[in-house]
Amino acid sequence: MGLIQRQVEARGIPTVSITVARDVTERTKVPRAVFAPWPMGHHFGAPFHREIQLRVLREAFDLVQSAERSGEIRDLPIKWATVRRESKHLSAQGRQL
């Protein structure tokens, strides 16, 4: 994925990626990334938790506007336990059960 990101940026289109593996992202030197300390397969949090999904997207788009140097990684200060706790009772409608 890092290869694609680098190639797209090199074509003049600003890019941002989401990562749960900060070490992998650091080594591929992608232009911008948001790091979420969450499990694989959960880059946008938990099912039906619309707020957290939107939050990750907004962080990413904000980073595209604000990053000043290539390779900037923004750490998302939300622990997995918090995501899990907040999403425990969410239904398909995104409401608390």
């Binding site: 994925m1 694609i4 990101q5 797209v8 940026e9 289109i13 600003p14 890019t15 941002v16 990626s17 989401i18 990562t19 749960v20 593996a21 992608v30 694989m40 397969g41 880059h43 946008f44 997207l57 990413a60 788009f61 595209v64």
Partner: peptide, 9 residues
């Protein structure tokens, strides 16, 4: 596109 979002799994 003006902006690309890349999401690994």
């Amino acid at each position: 596109a003006d902006l690309a979002l890349l999401v690994p799994a």
